[in-house]
Design a protein around this nucleic acid. Structure first.
Length: 592
RNA sequence: GCGCUGGUGGUCUAGUGGUAGGACAUGAGCUUCCCAAGCUCAUAGCCCGGGUUCAAUUCCCGGCCAGCGCACCA
């Protein structure tokens, strides 16, 4: 994750402060465990925030699981140590820190070593060796220049550890990403996909990282929600449906532009970017094309949105290409998602470390017929002849048959065994050449991984929705949230304290809730105050029951739209239907 | 983790070596026929631990937390 720093302006800082204050006051999010002094890097989503986050997750599920025909799973957050040995998190997630005794600054010991010696991969060296190198090369603190020799190098692992069951013989870790829960279950998941590539598996869930310093409210926390898709493809045969996203307009910030002196973002389309080689991988391009309109649909401001390519140094070694979705908040670009082509790295590692197979059997279009040379030695001959070495002879014969069948053309075959040459009658080897039919081969699928940070997206959505304006000379704060994600869809009010009005309002609340809408009722204070309350949490519509409602023959209510504060009269009979249509995007308020 | 600044009702803040005032918000009532109006009343607070002191929310030390800078963000 990188957060490119840009100059901040007073305006945006103010918005951020106001937003955090609003979030606390109105129940979007707040720091957890406040009664006990608070704990760093943990946040609770309040009633509004939980609803917003849930709606965003639902929208993600609709787009990336349902609409793409992918499977969703829900794996545990705690996994045993071997999983993370395989994934590389146990080692790779370790930071080697060394503290300067003079100025107190702590630095990455491996980085200091790499920068100042010929060692290139200090991270993989054992701690004592790094300490020795530091002493031997008389390395100094980059901050103050004091010598670091003799200072202890300590590791800090970003994973939260725990014990599974009693005792500490069975260590486990809280997952630092949801992805491993998918990779680990691949052998079973491929069955559910009927062994057919390509297929995708999604997961929305919590991940944990013991960050050294959590920052900026919910932007960088120690427990967060990810929405990830692992899309498994056959690298040779599978291709994305690029046509479907070719026309999607995107703002790209490729590595080349970031490196250039006066580099800038590029306005283009997915189709053109692939054609011009700006986006190197078609699968990554496809998911960027899916993601952009989706981000727009949940309320990310497209003027403050871009895809930024990872610089070569930022990229994990196995990632062929990687792009981040970034949004601008407070004048800073923050990473909201990463789209990486991970090759076969993850599955190969689990194949290597586990007992299971992480491959898929790929059937050839036509079965292949191949000739194969095999041996079937006569053990009643080899046994007495070679004694304990008989098995070694067999192994050697098998190897020889595979690599050089001409060796078996004479009456005897020569093999080398521990420096000695032995002659064995070919008839005793059971040598034969047979035709074999091969239907296919086991391949390790490649993985394309769109990985979304939900909390950061929620923060962005709120920030981009924050508005201040004036209504009738009075200041107003409101959240211009998309109806699809707004925590509450409609507020219902009686115009005044009046039993008749309240009775009608109660009925309307029940009707709208029965229609599946998220409704809130409010009868306190004057009508303007109630409108403002709903504005501030981003409720798109308010319904007011007035005296026309109860006195006129045709019962109607006013429906007031949040952003414009415009009002229209709607018949009570049609209210639920009309509002549902608006929510589902089938009708616009202006059309009423 | 290091450094700087800060921590007072739900929120924002004033202030003080003798335990606190405001604004907004919230609740009740009055008023009110569509955009935070008015009036009355009510609820509610000095981050935690230790020290100095007759007395600490205030001063000192430590911790926790937040924002920012550095470092970190596989």
């Amino acid at each position: 994750m990188s957060e490119q720093q840009h100059a901040t302006t007073d305006d945006t800082d103010v918005t951020s402060e106001k937003l955090v204050e609003l979030a606390k006051r109105r129940g979007y999010f707040f720091q957890s465990s406040g009664a006990y002094g608070g704990v760093g890097g943990f946040y609770t989503f309040g009633p509004q925030g939980a609803a917003l986050k849930g709606n965003v997750e639902d929208a993600w599920r609709d787009r990336f699981a349902v609409a793409e025909g992918n499977m969703e799973i829900d794996a545990p957050t705690i996994m045993p140590e071997p999983v993370f040995e395989a994934s590389g998190h146990l080692e790779g997630f370790d930071d080697m820190l060394v503290e300067c005794s003079e100025c107190g600054a702590s630095h990455r010991a491996d980085h200091i070593v790499e920068d100042n010696t010929e060692y290139e991969d200090a991270e993989s060296l054992p701690i004592p060796e790094v300490e020795e190198i530091v002493a031997e090369y008389e390395l100094v603190c980059p901050a103050c220049g004091a010598g670091l020799a003799g200072q202890a190098v300590e590791t800090f692992n970003l994973m939260f550890g725990t014990n599974i069951g009693p005792g500490d013989s069975d260590p486990g870790y809280l997952r630092p990403e949801t992805a491993q829960g998918i990779f680990v279950e691949f052998p079973r998941l491929k069955e559910y996909a009927r062994n057919q590539l390509p297929f995708g598996v999604t997961q929305i869930g919590r991940a944990y990282r013991n960050e050294i310093s959590p920052r900026r409210s919910i932007i960088r926390t120690r427990e967060f929600t990810q929405a990830e898709l692992e899309y498994f493809v056959d690298p040779e045969d599978d291709e994305p449906d690029l046509e479907a996203v070719a026309d999607v307009a995107v703002t790209l910030y490729p590595a080349s532009e970031q490196n250039a002196e006066d580099g800038s973002e590029i306005e283009t389309t997915i189709g053109e970017a692939v054609e011009e080689g700006i986006i190197g991988d078609e699968w990554v391009a496809y998911f960027l094309g899916v993601a952009k309109p989706w981000y727009e649909s949940v309320g990310v401001d497209m003027d403050r949105f871009r895809f930024r390519q990872h610089l070569s140094g930022e990229r994990a070694h196995y990632a062929a290409d990687c792009w981040d979705a970034e949004s601008e908040v407070d004048g800073n670009w923050i990473e909201m998602a990463g789209f990486a082509y991970r090759g076969d790295y993850d599955l190969s590692k689990h194949e290597e470390y586990s007992d299971d197979r992480f491959t898929i059997f790929k059937q050839y279009d036509e079965p292949k017929t191949v000739e194969r040379a095999t041996v079937d030695p006569d053990m009643s001959y080899l046994g007495p002849e070679f004694g304990g070495a008989a098995q070694d002879v067999v192994d050697e014969l098998e190897a020889l048959a595979a690599r050089d069948r001409e060796a078996f053309e004479g009456d005897t075959v020569e093999i080398d065994l521990e420096g000695e040459t032995h002659e064995i009658p070919v008839e005793k080897t059971g040598f034969s050449v047979d035709e074999e039919t091969i239907a296919g081969e086991h391949i390790t699928p490649h993985v394309v991984e769109p990985s979304f940070g939900v909390d950061r997206l929620v923060y962005t959505v709120l920030h981009h929705a924050y508005r201040e304006d004036e209504v009738d000379g009075e200041e107003r704060t409101y959240l211009e949230l998309e109806p699809e994600v707004a925590p509450t869809f409609v507020g219902v009010f009686p115009l005044q304290n009046d039993d008749d009005l309240e009775a009608v309002a109660d009925e309307i609340v029940a009707d709208l809730r029965a229609a599946g809408l998220s409704v809130t009722y409010d009868d306190s204070g004057n009508i303007g105050r109630r409108y403002r309350r709903q504005d501030e949490v981003g409720t798109p519509f308010c319904v007011t029951v007035d005296y026309e409602t109860v006195e006129d023959e045709e019962t109607t209510v006013t429906v007031r739209e949040r952003d414009t504060t415009d009002q229209k009269r709607i018949a009570v009979d049609e209210l639920a239907e009309t509002l549902s249509a608006i929510r589902d995007g089938d009708l616009a308020f202006e059309e009423l």
